[in-house]
Simulated assay, not measured.
Amino acid sequence: MTLKWVAVVVAAVSMTLWATGNAVTLAVNGGQLPLFVNLLALVSAGTAVVLAVLAELHERLNDRLNALTDFLVARLAEIEARSGDRNTGFVEGYLLNHGQEAAVVPIGRRGRGAAER
């Protein structure tokens, strides 16, 4: 069972126990449960409701992120299929037209380090 449903069950059980306890105490003694018991039941139910709402929001956000990821992967695959290796052919053709092999030159450090050399 997910966290959301556990929190819903806890809230329902807590409110049921609160209502039943107060009804039985009212019928037997003509009073109500002690304040601490009532507050404990209400706080646990409120906390469970907040937790259930947060769990639902988290689940929705996770679903949206998964959908966005799937969309981006599909879109990037489509762009890759459409463009292919066109730039590779352009660079090779350019180098062949100039009649020489391109020398590999290491890229130096940028900034202050390049000026000091």
Rank of each mutant, 00 (worst) to 15 (best):
L51G: 01
F71C: 00
G21W: 07
A12Y: 03
T16S: 10
N29G: 06
D70N: 13
L33G: 03
A45W: 02
V24D: 01
V50K: 11
D63F: 08
L42R: 11
T16F: 15
R82L: 11
L33E: 04
V50D: 04
L35T: 15
N66S: 14
L54M: 13
A23G: 10
E80N: 12
G46E: 02
L26W: 15
F36S: 10
N38F: 01
N38I: 03
A81P: 03
G30K: 02
L61F: 10
D63W: 06
L68H: 12
A23R: 05
M15A: 02
S44H: 01
I79G: 06
A11V: 01
T47K: 04
R64E: 13
H58K: 09
V53H: 05
A41H: 06
D70R: 14
V49I: 15
S44A: 13
R75V: 03
F71E: 06
N38K: 04
N22Q: 12
L76S: 14
G84F: 06
L61S: 12
V49C: 07
G31D: 15
L68S: 15
L65A: 09
V28M: 09
T25K: 08
G30V: 03
S44R: 00
V13P: 04
E59A: 14
A48V: 02
S44M: 09
E56V: 07
A67E: 10
A12D: 01
A11M: 03
N22P: 05
A74C: 05
A23Y: 10
L76Q: 14
T20H: 08
G46M: 02
N62Y: 14
T20K: 05
D63I: 07
S14V: 03
N38Q: 05
T16M: 14
V28G: 04
V50T: 12
D63R: 09
E80W: 08
V24T: 08
G46Y: 02
L51D: 01
A52K: 00
E80I: 07
E59K: 03
S14M: 04
I79E: 14
E59W: 08
Q32F: 15
A55E: 05
R60H: 07
V43A: 09
V73D: 13
E56C: 09
S14T: 03
L76V: 10
S44V: 07
A11P: 02
L68R: 13
A77T: 11
L51Q: 00
V73A: 09
L39D: 00
W18V: 03
E78T: 05
E78M: 08
V24A: 12
N22R: 10
L51C: 05
L68Y: 13
N62R: 13
V73G: 04
V73S: 08
W18I: 07
R75I: 00
V37Q: 05
V37Y: 04
A12S: 11
A81V: 05
N38D: 04
L76D: 14
L26F: 12
N38Y: 00
R75L: 11
T16C: 14
A11S: 06
